[in-house]
Design a protein around this nucleic acid. Structure first.
Lengths: 339, 339
DNA sequence: ATGAAAGCGCTAACAC
DNA sequence: GTGTTAGCGCTTTCAT
């Protein structure tokens, strides 16, 4: 690997001059500039980013901590985050935690603050906030992505999405279609991070006079399999149900399959609606009605907030929370009029 | 951010000693060790990885270049690669190229050789090998992942999967089920990277006396949508077809949907088989029969090969190609006896 | 327009 | 056991 010094020697100048030429800074003579440029090209010179980061005191990478890149939502978010980061001259390091707090801590310790200039964290619920706060206290900018409760800001800078509203929107859609006997599948534990979506849905339903939802609600996990199982349980016990609200698209797909397994036609016999609008939602059959959440927008906002934190640094204790634009109904083939 | 020097000063020793304490190297007195450790803990010391990488001449990250992390195959591969890398003390930088050669080159230039110690590259077909060879010539170890032609090693170190054999296996499965009127959907251009899977399939079919496959083959892209479209075209023009081979799971899912749209029952009316066994394959309904490819194994082999290249470096021009274990049939619900 | 010098934070080799 | 020294590759004043 060619270094600045090598080029300098061959060009008969000093490293400083070479640096100036390559970065277009300072005044350099036309002829030396030509010479240096030619040499750099010939030797295939590439700056050592570690050295640059060291002297500039500013690493060139951002870290994204996710529980598992294999959950289809994350790649979509990651893609947007990576593009936003690159646009600002940063690289993105992906840190998979597999919901392992130890791993999470290890990543935060090692990557945060030196290798990476700042950290984006998903799934604030799995995370012990202490770990994040400790990292922040050490000087690592941290941004929580996809916070679910805009009305109650977390202890860290964050990007929030109004998931409560998303739940309401889903309810309004089902109500407009005439559904009154509805059930719900929640892709998290009873106190997990999907609870606000469910509350939004449940509150809207309650306002419409539907008050037995709680009896027809199953809590579980954010997977296709869990959705499948929950729906099976729900549908066999309550065949009169005409619509199921699911707190996330992945388990919603499981619900769709469960309906198919039970011989139910969607949406003629049963309507299903999810939340998020992952790519898969429009790719499966029947395509999934859902409440779209601005994933790419959130990713971009998160990167920009992180970067502004990095630059402006201690806005003396201010913990900004930015809210994305509103979730939006995407009505597809999995919802229809109540039978 | 606390530094070694700060701790050293507070502890009344030199940076070297602190370094020794923290890394457990060299001989250090019990009491100073205690003192240093306490200070480090108190100040929340974290080593600057850039500085360490600089002096050790060994970065701590590996880069993974993929065309789009949003294609569900990549996250699965990425997950395995990240775990293998971490096991060896490396971090993984994800580089999305969106099939843009410019971006690819930029990533290789900037990340390879300084920020990252080596580079894993997927989709060797989209990549101009020149760019990779140039990077390698500059001293950046490069490993091609998922090379599709074991019998013809590429110009770079690589991990190969016997996709030709995978195609054969798919053919054998359909033949065993009695299918004679078969069609094929290829998820790449006519000369794209899926061609060897198709050849494997076609050759096995030819050996069984089926020689009109070429007339029932559609080339396209590696997406659900493309598979859907190709199947629609194929099935409306050739209703007598009883089975479709698809060169990848994603378009195979599209074929499944197309069959559903046309009112065909799978597998009673039509059998469909894919290749890869992505997670989605067992999650959709009907579940997809496919030929599983050892994704995680390939990822791990790729990381290990890259690391050995980094250590052993120039095995003087040797361009090792490692072949993963054999693809394997995974018969699910999308294939059945010919009607 | 170019050079000299200092230093980013850390590790390694060797001296004490 | 602990300190000293040097240097990784680069950028940035400040001289010249």
């Amino acid at each position: 690997m060619a270094t600045l010094a090598q080029i300098a020697q061959l060009a008969g100048v000093t490293p400083a001059t070479v640096s100036n030429v390559l970065r277009g800074r300072g005044k350099v003579g036309e002829d030396t500039k030509k010479r240096v440029l030619a040499l750099a090209e010939e030797l295939g010179y590439r700056p050592n980013l570690h050295a640059r980061a060291l002297v500039e005191g500013r690493p060139l990478t951002l870290a994204l901590v996710v529980s598992s890149i294999a959950n289809p939502f994350y790649p979509e978010f990651t893609l947007a985050a990576e593009q936003a980061a690159r646009k600002q001259g940063y690289f993105l390091i992906v840190c998979n935690t597999n919901d392992d707090p130890e791993l999470e801590k290890a990543y935060l310790d090692q990557v945060g603050g030196s290798l990476a200039h700042g950290v984006l964290v998903m799934n604030a619920d799995f995370v012990e906030q202490d770990v994040l706060l400790a990292a922040e206290r050490r000087g690592t900018p941290v941004v929580l992505c996809m916070w679910e409760r805009p009305e109650q800001p977390p202890a860290l800078p964050s990007i929030a999405v109004d998931f409560y509203r998303a739940g309401e929107i889903a309810a309004e859609h089902l109500l407009a279609l005439g559904h009154r006997r509805v059930a719900a599948v929640v892709g998290s534990e009873r106190n997990g991070n999907h609870i606000w979506r469910y509350r939004g849905f449940a509150d809207a339903m309650a306002r419409a006079g539907i008050d037995d939802l709680a009896e027809h609600t199953v809590f579980g996990h954010d997977t296709i399999e869990a959705g499948h199982e929950a729906a099976h349980q729900l549908l066999t016990a309550n065949p009169q149900v005409t619509a199921i609200f699911v707190s996330n698209d992945l388990p919603a797909i499981g619900v769709l399959q469960s309906a198919a397994d039970l011989g139910l036609r969607v949406p003629a016999d049963l309507s299903v609606i999810g939340i998020t609008d992952i790519n898969l939602a429009h790719q499966i059959r029947p395509s999934l009605s859902t409440v779209a959440v601005p994933t790419a927008e959130a990713a971009e906002m998160a990167v920009n907030l992180l970067l502004s934190l990095i630059k402006g640094q201690p806005a003396d204790g201010a913990r900004p929370m930015l809210v994305t634009s509103r979730p939006q109904l995407v009505a597809r083939d999995s919802t229809g009029p109540a039978r």
